[in-house]
């Protein structure tokens, strides 16, 4: 049985189809946007995984018209330290020269930046950061002496894998090599004190 067409034109028949089509389009669009960080084959983590082994500081190629990620600043030297917390907590230690800009950001596996700091976060030029999972933090805290505060900054990573990104500013074009040296002087790797 067919419904009576009160208007007597094609719109009455096609409208529900158009609405259905737009509904499907909306669901597909929103679904694919949310899935993109997990599915994109060329995200920052994938790019860095091909360049760097975990648990060591690795310099990234200079930002030139031919190399580097889009929208990077050519005045910055860049380095990374990949982490895989399934092997244990990761410690970052640094002695930073005063008034030389160093940017440090903590990236989760699927692109989220969960912490960031600059060299001004260092106390007396020293930086001591422990990157842990929630369970590892409990274990570390259980071993803390009761009468003193921990001397390191402890950060919980939302994913087991990810990377730290270091960016050092070359204030003048000739200082890019110095900026790269400042990144290479950072120490980043599995925490030797921690029990697995």
């Amino acid at each position: 049985m067919r419904l009576k067409d009160p208007v007597g034109n094609a719109a009455f028949h096609t409208l529900p189809w158009i609405v259905g089509c737009l509904f499907i389009a909306g669901v597909v669009h929103i679904g694919s946007i949310f899935a993109m960080p997990r599915l994109a084959p060329q995200d920052a983590f994938a790019r860095i995984s091909t360049l760097a082994q975990p648990h060591k500081v690795v310099l990234l190629p200079a930002t030139t018209p031919e190399s580097g990620a889009p929208f990077d600043d050519p005045a910055l030297a860049q380095g990374v330290c990949r982490y895989d917390l399934s092997q244990g907590p990761v410690r970052l230690r640094a002695t930073l020269p005063p008034d030389a800009l160093m940017l440090i950001s903590f990236h989760a596996r699927h692109g989220q930046i969960f912490y960031s700091m600059t060299d001004r976060s260092a106390t007396h030029g020293k930086l001591d950061v422990l990157l842990v999972t929630r369970q590892q933090l409990d274990a570390v805290e259980a071993n803390d002496p009761e009468d003193e505060l921990p001397q390191d900054l402890r950060i919980i990573a939302p994913t087991q894998e990810g990377f730290l990104l270091f960016r050092a500013l070359a204030e003048y074009p000739g200082e890019l090599a110095d900026a790269r040296d400042r990144i290479q002087s950072l120490s980043c790797g599995l925490d030797k004190d921690a029990k697995p």
Partner: peptide
């Protein structure tokens, strides 16, 4: 997030 994942970009963290 989708755009950065697609292009492999690493934006600045807010403290940076």
């Amino acid at each position: 997030r989708a755009l950065y994942a697609r292009n492999g970009e690493t934006p600045l963290g807010i403290t940076e």
